[in-house]
Amino acid sequence: MATAITTIGFDADDTLWQNERFFRMTQERFAQLLADFAEPDHLMDRLLAAEIRNLGHYGFGIKGFVLSMIETAIEVTEDRVPARVIRELLEAGQEMLRHPIELMPHARDAVQALADEFRILLITKGDLLDQERKLAQSGLGDLFDGVEIVSDKTAPRYEAIFARHGEGAGRSVMVGNSLRSDVIPAIEAGAWGVFVPHDLTWELEHAEPPLGHARFAELQHLGELPALINTLG
Protein backbone atom coordinates (compact mmCIF):
# COMPACT_ATOMS: atom_id res chain seq x y z
CA MET A 1 0.00 0.00 0.00
CA ALA A 2 1.36 3.41 -0.96
CA THR A 3 2.20 5.88 1.80
CA ALA A 4 0.49 9.24 1.35
CA ILE A 5 2.82 12.10 0.51
CA THR A 6 2.54 15.04 2.92
CA THR A 7 5.73 17.06 2.33
CA ILE A 8 7.46 18.32 -0.81
CA GLY A 9 10.94 19.82 -0.76
CA PHE A 10 12.21 22.02 -3.57
CA ASP A 11 15.79 22.84 -4.45
CA ALA A 12 16.30 26.50 -5.35
CA ASP A 13 19.17 27.18 -7.77
CA ASP A 14 18.44 25.93 -11.30
CA THR A 15 15.27 24.24 -10.07
CA LEU A 16 13.11 27.24 -9.15
CA TRP A 17 15.32 29.98 -10.59
CA GLN A 18 18.31 30.39 -12.89
CA ASN A 19 21.76 30.21 -11.34
CA GLU A 20 24.42 28.28 -13.24
CA ARG A 21 23.96 30.51 -16.29
CA PHE A 22 25.50 33.43 -14.40
CA PHE A 23 28.45 31.33 -13.23
CA ARG A 24 29.13 30.32 -16.85
CA MET A 25 28.99 33.95 -18.00
CA THR A 26 31.48 34.92 -15.30
CA GLN A 27 33.74 32.01 -16.23
CA GLU A 28 33.82 33.29 -19.81
CA ARG A 29 34.82 36.72 -18.51
CA PHE A 30 37.47 35.06 -16.34
CA ALA A 31 38.91 33.26 -19.39
CA GLN A 32 39.10 36.53 -21.32
CA LEU A 33 40.90 38.30 -18.48
CA LEU A 34 43.50 35.51 -18.21
CA ALA A 35 43.81 34.83 -21.95
CA ASP A 36 47.45 35.98 -21.99
CA PHE A 37 48.38 33.47 -19.28
CA ALA A 38 46.40 30.26 -19.90
CA GLU A 39 44.26 28.47 -22.49
CA PRO A 40 40.56 28.41 -21.60
CA ASP A 41 40.28 24.65 -21.09
CA HIS A 42 43.37 24.54 -18.89
CA LEU A 43 42.13 27.55 -16.93
CA MET A 44 38.73 25.96 -16.31
CA ASP A 45 40.39 22.74 -15.13
CA ARG A 46 42.50 24.73 -12.68
CA LEU A 47 39.46 26.68 -11.50
CA LEU A 48 37.44 23.51 -10.90
CA ALA A 49 40.32 22.00 -8.95
CA ALA A 50 40.47 25.15 -6.80
CA GLU A 51 36.72 25.04 -6.18
CA ILE A 52 36.93 21.41 -5.07
CA ARG A 53 39.85 22.19 -2.76
CA ASN A 54 38.04 25.14 -1.26
CA LEU A 55 34.60 23.66 -0.63
CA GLY A 56 35.57 22.74 2.90
CA HIS A 57 36.72 26.31 3.54
CA TYR A 58 34.18 28.46 1.72
CA GLY A 59 31.25 26.13 1.03
CA PHE A 60 29.01 26.53 -2.01
CA GLY A 61 28.10 29.87 -3.55
CA ILE A 62 29.30 32.99 -5.31
CA LYS A 63 31.76 34.16 -2.65
CA GLY A 64 33.68 30.88 -2.69
CA PHE A 65 33.59 30.91 -6.49
CA VAL A 66 35.15 34.39 -6.63
CA LEU A 67 37.86 33.47 -4.14
CA SER A 68 38.64 30.36 -6.20
CA MET A 69 38.92 32.49 -9.35
CA ILE A 70 41.34 34.83 -7.62
CA GLU A 71 43.39 31.92 -6.30
CA THR A 72 43.51 30.37 -9.78
CA ALA A 73 44.52 33.69 -11.34
CA ILE A 74 47.42 33.96 -8.89
CA GLU A 75 48.51 30.40 -9.63
CA VAL A 76 48.41 30.51 -13.43
CA THR A 77 50.23 33.85 -13.55
CA GLU A 78 52.82 32.70 -11.01
CA ASP A 79 51.94 35.60 -8.68
CA ARG A 80 52.01 38.15 -11.52
CA VAL A 81 48.29 38.69 -11.97
CA PRO A 82 47.60 42.40 -12.59
CA ALA A 83 45.66 44.22 -9.88
CA ARG A 84 43.07 45.28 -12.46
CA VAL A 85 42.23 41.59 -13.07
CA ILE A 86 41.63 41.03 -9.35
CA ARG A 87 39.47 44.13 -9.30
CA GLU A 88 37.41 42.94 -12.29
CA LEU A 89 36.92 39.51 -10.73
CA LEU A 90 35.64 41.12 -7.55
CA GLU A 91 33.31 43.32 -9.61
CA ALA A 92 32.07 40.27 -11.50
CA GLY A 93 31.19 38.58 -8.23
CA GLN A 94 29.36 41.67 -7.01
CA GLU A 95 27.39 41.73 -10.27
CA MET A 96 26.38 38.10 -9.70
CA LEU A 97 25.18 38.95 -6.20
CA ARG A 98 23.07 41.80 -7.58
CA HIS A 99 21.60 39.93 -10.53
CA PRO A 100 17.77 39.87 -10.61
CA ILE A 101 16.05 36.53 -10.06
CA GLU A 102 14.77 34.72 -13.15
CA LEU A 103 12.24 32.05 -12.29
CA MET A 104 12.35 28.78 -14.19
CA PRO A 105 9.39 27.96 -16.47
CA HIS A 106 6.36 26.66 -14.52
CA ALA A 107 8.10 27.23 -11.16
CA ARG A 108 5.50 29.55 -9.64
CA ASP A 109 2.53 27.59 -10.97
CA ALA A 110 3.91 24.27 -9.73
CA VAL A 111 4.59 25.51 -6.20
CA GLN A 112 1.26 27.31 -6.00
CA ALA A 113 -0.64 24.26 -7.25
CA LEU A 114 0.81 22.09 -4.49
CA ALA A 115 0.93 24.58 -1.61
CA ASP A 116 -2.70 24.20 -0.50
CA GLU A 117 -2.56 20.42 -0.14
CA PHE A 118 1.05 19.70 0.89
CA ARG A 119 3.67 21.02 3.27
CA ILE A 120 6.12 22.86 0.99
CA LEU A 121 9.79 23.29 1.91
CA LEU A 122 12.70 25.08 0.30
CA ILE A 123 15.89 23.08 0.82
CA THR A 124 18.94 24.73 -0.68
CA LYS A 125 22.66 24.95 -0.08
CA GLY A 126 24.97 27.90 -0.51
CA ASP A 127 25.71 31.25 1.06
CA LEU A 128 23.09 32.22 3.64
CA LEU A 129 22.79 35.90 2.71
CA ASP A 130 22.70 35.23 -1.02
CA GLN A 131 20.06 32.51 -0.76
CA GLU A 132 17.93 34.68 1.50
CA ARG A 133 18.22 37.51 -1.05
CA LYS A 134 17.17 35.27 -3.92
CA LEU A 135 14.24 33.85 -1.99
CA ALA A 136 13.03 37.35 -1.08
CA GLN A 137 13.27 38.51 -4.70
CA SER A 138 11.63 35.38 -6.12
CA GLY A 139 8.18 36.24 -4.82
CA LEU A 140 7.74 32.62 -3.74
CA GLY A 141 8.62 33.03 -0.08
CA ASP A 142 5.06 33.07 1.26
CA LEU A 143 4.38 29.69 -0.34
CA PHE A 144 6.91 27.80 1.77
CA ASP A 145 6.11 26.30 5.16
CA GLY A 146 9.80 26.01 5.96
CA VAL A 147 13.17 27.11 4.58
CA GLU A 148 16.40 25.19 5.13
CA ILE A 149 19.68 26.70 3.88
CA VAL A 150 22.33 24.05 4.47
CA SER A 151 26.06 23.66 3.92
CA ASP A 152 25.58 20.41 1.99
CA LYS A 153 22.86 17.90 1.17
CA THR A 154 23.25 14.40 2.55
CA ALA A 155 20.92 11.55 3.46
CA PRO A 156 21.15 12.27 7.21
CA ARG A 157 20.43 15.93 6.53
CA TYR A 158 17.29 15.05 4.55
CA GLU A 159 16.19 12.62 7.27
CA ALA A 160 16.48 15.38 9.87
CA ILE A 161 14.72 18.02 7.76
CA PHE A 162 11.79 15.82 6.80
CA ALA A 163 11.42 14.63 10.39
CA ARG A 164 11.48 18.20 11.70
CA HIS A 165 9.03 19.65 9.17
CA GLY A 166 6.85 16.66 8.33
CA GLU A 167 6.11 13.01 9.01
CA GLY A 168 9.51 11.76 7.96
CA ALA A 169 11.31 11.06 4.69
CA GLY A 170 9.04 8.14 3.80
CA ARG A 171 6.15 10.56 3.23
CA SER A 172 8.23 13.21 1.50
CA VAL A 173 9.40 14.16 -1.99
CA MET A 174 12.53 16.11 -2.94
CA VAL A 175 12.53 17.93 -6.28
CA GLY A 176 15.67 19.26 -7.92
CA ASN A 177 18.02 19.49 -10.87
CA SER A 178 21.01 17.84 -9.17
CA LEU A 179 21.20 14.07 -9.04
CA ARG A 180 24.10 14.23 -6.60
CA SER A 181 22.55 16.69 -4.15
CA ASP A 182 18.79 16.64 -4.60
CA VAL A 183 17.83 13.19 -5.80
CA ILE A 184 20.20 10.43 -4.68
CA PRO A 185 20.67 11.43 -1.01
CA ALA A 186 16.92 12.07 -0.65
CA ILE A 187 16.20 8.55 -1.94
CA GLU A 188 18.86 7.17 0.41
CA ALA A 189 17.00 8.91 3.24
CA GLY A 190 13.79 7.13 2.22
CA ALA A 191 12.07 9.93 0.30
CA TRP A 192 11.06 10.19 -3.33
CA GLY A 193 13.63 11.88 -5.54
CA VAL A 194 12.27 13.80 -8.54
CA PHE A 195 14.86 14.87 -11.10
CA VAL A 196 14.11 17.95 -13.22
CA PRO A 197 17.15 18.38 -15.51
CA HIS A 198 18.62 21.77 -16.27
CA ASP A 199 20.58 22.35 -19.48
CA LEU A 200 23.47 23.78 -17.42
CA THR A 201 24.61 21.85 -14.37
CA TRP A 202 27.87 22.29 -12.46
CA GLU A 203 30.27 19.38 -12.96
CA LEU A 204 30.30 18.53 -9.26
CA GLU A 205 26.54 17.94 -9.29
CA HIS A 206 26.65 15.20 -11.94
CA ALA A 207 25.87 11.59 -11.02
CA GLU A 208 24.36 8.51 -12.59
CA PRO A 209 20.55 8.46 -12.31
CA PRO A 210 19.18 5.65 -10.12
CA LEU A 211 17.16 4.20 -12.98
CA GLY A 212 14.73 1.52 -11.92
CA HIS A 213 14.56 2.65 -8.31
CA ALA A 214 10.97 2.60 -7.08
CA ARG A 215 11.27 6.10 -5.63
CA PHE A 216 12.97 7.82 -8.57
CA ALA A 217 11.16 9.90 -11.17
CA GLU A 218 12.31 12.25 -13.91
CA LEU A 219 10.33 15.12 -15.41
CA GLN A 220 10.93 17.35 -18.40
CA HIS A 221 9.88 20.46 -16.48
CA LEU A 222 8.15 21.56 -13.29
CA GLY A 223 4.82 21.85 -15.05
CA GLU A 224 4.59 18.06 -14.90
CA LEU A 225 5.11 17.89 -11.14
CA PRO A 226 1.54 18.26 -9.79
CA ALA A 227 0.29 15.38 -11.91
CA LEU A 228 3.22 13.21 -10.78
CA ILE A 229 2.64 13.99 -7.11
CA ASN A 230 -0.97 12.86 -7.42
CA THR A 231 0.25 9.41 -8.51
CA LEU A 232 2.63 8.96 -5.57
CA GLY A 233 0.12 8.94 -2.72
Rank of each mutant, 00 (worst) to 15 (best):
I74Y: 07
D79Q: 06
D79P: 00
V81T: 13
V81I: 12
R84H: 15
V85E: 12
I86S: 03
E88Y: 09
E88Q: 15
L89K: 00
L89M: 02
L90M: 03
E91R: 01
G93N: 01
Q94K: 04
Q94L: 08
Q94T: 03
M96H: 08
M96V: 03
M96W: 07
M96E: 08
M96C: 07
R98Y: 02
I101P: 08
E102R: 14
M104H: 01
P105G: 15
H106G: 13
A107M: 04
A110F: 02
A113D: 12
A113F: 12
L114P: 11
L114K: 09
L114I: 07
D116Y: 06
L121R: 00
L122T: 12
I123L: 13
T124S: 14
T124K: 08
L129A: 15
D130V: 08
Q131C: 13
Q131Y: 10
E132R: 15
R133C: 14
K134R: 15
L135M: 15
A136F: 07
S138Q: 03
S138R: 04
S138C: 07
G141I: 11
D142I: 12
L143T: 12
F144K: 02
D145C: 00
V147Q: 03
E148I: 00
I149W: 07
V150Q: 10
V150F: 13
V150M: 10
D152E: 14
A155F: 09
P156H: 10
P156K: 11
R157L: 11
R157S: 04
E159T: 15
I161C: 00
I161M: 00
R164P: 02
H165T: 03
G166A: 07
G168W: 05
A169M: 01
A169W: 00
G170E: 10
G170S: 04
G170R: 01
R171W: 01
S172W: 02
M174R: 05
V175S: 08
V175N: 05
S178T: 05
L179A: 06
L179W: 08
R180V: 10
R180Q: 15
S181A: 13
D182W: 05
V183E: 07
I184Y: 12
P185N: 10
P185A: 09
P185R: 08
